[in-house]
């Protein structure tokens, strides 16, 4: 196996991993801070895409569409958190309510999208500047895939800075550890939860928009990304942001080299990795213990 093939396959894996990470990071952030397993997270991936599609119909500019799509997905997320999710926090059997409610939103958002934009596939073209391919040595890499990898890394850097260097970021981390204590110290905890939900769903929207020029824009697309994202989150550790990054990189590369060396088993390999992690370190690779709302 020559070196160039390994590099090409590694970069493919990285590109897959970054889109997985962008979806999974929002999912894990919501779980870490709100202790909600948001099955509807893929629906924000879908909504972001359709908002962008709509804006591009009006202004024919990818970047305007991207900005509005991200903000739109975040706003819808916050509205849903305030109007619906907030009502079930702390109830008996909250887990079951979460499951029912977030699953219901998958169906509702999917049908609303179909109702507004129709069932046919839509197209979001790549911006002109990101067409074409780059040659890294003898390896061809599409410019747009490089762009996705760069955006993924920027999100990682920004999140690292925000969560570790800013007061607001520290509050978000604190609220994932002990919400009651944070409330007693005078912090507006509900506001932090709503904003976190909004940021996380905006990240879901961002993933959908970035993926759209490479994928099919269709109702149902959100459901398709959620299972892989769940695997990523399980491997990395529920609620652990850096775990989502590690999990996405592992899954992206295992899948990529699996396809190269044993294509019959490639898809199964990702599940095998998950099972091994669940047996050896059930809380996930980067979680010290199962986190949960106090």
């Amino acid at each position: 196996m020559d070196f160039n093939t390994l590099i090409a396959q590694f970069i493919s894996g990285l590109s897959v991993a970054m889109l997985l990470f962008l979806v999974a990071s929002g999912l894990t952030l919501i779980f870490g801070v709100l202790n909600v397993l948001n099955f509807a997270h893929g629906s924000f991936y879908l909504l972001g895409t359709y908002f962008t599609y709509q804006l591009m119909q009006m202004f024919d500019n990818f970047w305007v569409g991207l900005l509005v799509g991200v903000i739109g997905a975040g706003i819808v997320g916050m509205v849903i958190e305030v109007l619906f999710l907030r009502r079930i926090y702390g109830r008996d059997q909250e887990g079951a309510f979460q499951l029912l409610m977030t699953y219901a939103f998958i169906l509702i958002i999917d049908d609303v999208v179909k109702f507004i934009w129709g069932p046919e596939y839509k197209t979001i073209p790549k911006p002109d500047a990101l067409m074409g391919s780059l040659n890294i040595g003898t390896t061809v890499v599409p410019t747009y895939n490089v762009f996705i990898i760069v955006v993924g890394l920027l999100v990682v850097l920004f999140a690292w800075y925000f969560l570790t260097k800013t007061d607001k970021g520290k509050m978000v981390r604190a609220s994932s550890l002990d919400r009651n204590m944070l409330g007693l110290l005078g912090t507006n905890v509900p506001m932090i939860m709503t904003l976190t939900f909004g940021v996380a769903t905006a990240m879901g929207g961002l993933a959908g928009i970035l993926a759209a020029p490479l994928r099919t824009v269709t109702p149902g697309a959100g459901v398709e990304v959620i299972i892989d994202s769940m695997i990523v989150v399980v491997i990395g550790g529920f609620g652990n942001f850096w775990g989502a990054l590690l999990g996405a990189l592992i899954i992206g590369e295992v899948l990529s080299f699996g396809i190269l060396w044993m294509p019959e088993l490639a898809t199964v390999l990702t599940f095998i990795v998950m099972i091994i992690v669940l047996i050896v370190k059930p809380e996930g690779l980067l979680s010290k213990k199962m986190v949960g709302r106090k």
């Binding site: 090409a8 396959q9 493919s12 897959v16 889109l19 993926a211 490479l214 398709e224 899948l255 990529s256």
Partner: peptide
């Protein structure tokens, strides 16, 4: 419904 074929394509 696989969303990402990148690694298949390079293989």
């Amino acid at each position: 419904y696989e969303p990402d074929y990148t690694s298949y394509i390079t293989a």
